[in-house]
Write a protein that binds this DNA or RNA. Structure first.
Lengths: 204, 204
DNA sequence: GACACTAGTAATCGACTGATAACATGTCAA
DNA sequence: TTGACATGTTATCAGTCGATTACTAGTGTC
């Protein structure tokens, strides 16, 4: 997972390119440990740069996390927007909701995105993180409402997403055999995506 | 919130009583900062004892968190069990689900329980925490299934709970005026309990 | 080719963390 | 009363943390 540098050619980069690279590494690092549980040094190692450079580039660890959290939320919202914009959406048609859900399911392949979101939403004790979480949750809700559905339908859809995040965060797909009680819940939560997740877990 | 000791009479306690007291304090402390973000010293201060005593009582910080996390999950499951056992449950009757949901809603008054659960579920990077989370999630699912409902119904109910946790964790009820986009989502999520939550936020 | 500028590192700091060890004090049985 | 034990504390430590400072090395330009 570590950023593999083109060994030997440890050249300088344009600052915006390096920034994007560090942001990406920070996404992976924070996905593992969350805000409090991830050191700037861990991010630096993941990015292949020095720890002071990470700090100076973003000012503080908090500023870096806020950037990562915001990026994660934005990417997810953009996925929803793309699906909604690509054609008419009938809120009463099951298949349209499935289309939206499976778009979310695709994001599961890059689990870091969802895990970072999860950590951001759990970190309500840091005022700035909580505020950013509220803003982004509001935006996502508004985006879903653009399907023309009722607030209750949008809420139900988001709730499903939250459970999916939780199940993913606790590594449910990888450990279904150890916790048979959880299997039917995982079936409902992940649907068709489950077999893929389990296969990926076996491979990894 | 701090444990108010009967000042002056700083007497000794039976170890099991003290243990319960520290566990309670740890619930409050971990609810604020999560596992990684809460020091054993913070727990000790909350409990009104010394930091080394907290560590020695539970062995390690991780063991303490696991105890707290397990306690939180167990209490919530017990609430569900009580409601389900107190009479017949018709999975097709809206009012029975409302009964179950409002039992969960009552737990909202002690927000620490739900916040600790949230942190435990987000802390999937610590293998022991993730495993305990899976076990408890499985138990809760099994408990809900005792209503005689379908797996999908149980999954939907739990999903609603997860969104409720997230909304609570990000302090949505206290900040609805700052994030108007979020208001309709909060309406759906909290239902009748919302007015109480907002009132409590104003009071606190 | 040297100057100005930008991308990056090494060294280091004070604060904090979880844990251990040594010590103190209250309580009860004989 | 005294001794044994359980309940606590103070002192301390090695490791880690985020951040600052001072330094080094590319890079484009005149």
């Amino acid at each position: 997972m570590k950023a593999t540098e083109p060994a030997g050619t440890r050249r300088r980069m344009a600052v915006e390119d390096r920034r994007a690279l560090v942001l990406d590494a920070a996404m992976r690092a924070f996905a593992r440990g969350g805000y409090a549980g991830t050191s700037t040094d861990a991010v630096a190692r993941e990015a292949g740069v020095s720890q002071p450079y990470v700090v100076r580039m973003f000012g503080t660890k908090l500023a870096l996390f806020l950037d990562v959290f915001d990026l994660a939320c934005t990417r997810i919202r953009e996925v929803f927007e793309r699906v909604i914009d690509e054609g008419p959406f009938d809120p009463e048609a099951e298949e349209d909701w499935t289309r939206l859900a499976s778009a979310y399911g695709e994001l599961v392949r890059d689990r870091d995105l969802l895990t970072v979101m999860m950590h951001g939403w759990a970190a309500g004790d840091v005022a700035e993180i909580a505020a950013l979480g509220r803003t982004n949750m509001g935006r996502i809700f508004t985006t879903i409402m653009r399907t023309g559905c009722t607030p209750d339908q949008a809420e139900g859809f988001i709730a499903q997403g939250m459970l999916l995040n939780v199940m993913l965060s606790m590594r449910a797909p990888e450990h279904l055999d150890e916790t048979p009680e959880l299997a039917p819940l995982a079936d409902c939560t992940f649907g068709d995506a489950l077999s893929f997740l389990v296969a990926e877990a076996d491979a990894g």
